[in-house]
């Protein structure tokens, strides 16, 4: 009986060992897969953002072009009106006083709210508003204006997640900027001692193909 028992326990132990081994393998595999998935996701996101930015720039360029055209058309119209007014002045000098006093006609633009476009004027603040840009994970930006104290990485090197990239001093506080995920350093846009504004792209990264 005891002999039997011992055999059984041995077999059990082996089984457990095998099991843990295979489990460990599976877990490792899983982790690898997850890592791959994560980097794939980041890559995709970066691509998507790049495309969106390009589209945004194109749209902005088009808006500017349109605005320029409109302005030119308005100027032409104004010049024509001025010419007309001059002609009228020449023909009827008594009338000119009331004409020149009239307020300039405001410039209305199309303004879309949900499914409808309204004719209206834009305010200065509205025209100066900042467009939202989806931040790319492959660009390390300064989240506060400040001074670069030191840079701890070099271009072209693969850097592990969590490693210190640089120290950005702002408001008398030394802020440590870490690597958000494992990637290769593509370009470093700052030098130690340099002052950077807010949202400045300090370091550019590129994905590591595994």
């Amino acid at each position: 009986m005891p002999q039997n028992d011992r055999n059984k326990t041995k077999a059990d132990e082996a089984q457990v060992k095998n099991l843990t081994l295979s489990e460990k393998n599976a877990r490792e595999k899983q982790a690898l897969l997850e890592k791959k998935e994560k980097s794939k996701n980041i890559l995709e996101r970066a691509r998507r953002i790049h495309a969106a930015r390009k589209a945004h720039e194109a749209r902005k360029a088009k808006e500017e072009r349109d605005a320029r055209m409109e302005r030119r058309a308005a100027e032409r119209k104004k010049a024509e009106e001025a010419r007309k007014l001059k002609n009228m002045k020449n023909s009827a000098p008594g009338n000119s006083k009331t004409e020149s006093k009239a307020m300039p006609e405001p410039q209305y633009v199309d303004f879309a709210i949900t499914a409808r476009k309204y004719k209206t004027q834009l305010t200065k603040k509205y025209m100066q508003r900042k467009f939202w840009v989806n931040p790319s994970p492959y660009e390390i930006q300064s989240y506060i204006p400040g001074t670069i104290i030191s840079i701890d990485v070099k271009e072209g090197k693969i850097v592990e997640e969590g490693t210190r990239l640089l120290i950005l001093e702002a408001m008398k506080m030394q802020n440590r900027v870490d690597m958000p995920f494992t990637a290769r350093i593509k370009k470093i846009n700052v030098k130690a001692g340099e002052r950077v504004p807010k949202d400045f792209i300090m370091i550019e990264l590129e994905p590591v193909e595994s």
Binding site: F111, Y118, T120, Y126
Partner: peptide, 12 residues
């Protein structure tokens, strides 16, 4: 004021 921004309500 429909003359500006179609008279919408915004933050300001």
């Amino acid at each position: 004021q429909p003359m500006y921004l179609a008279g919408v309500l915004d933050c300001d």
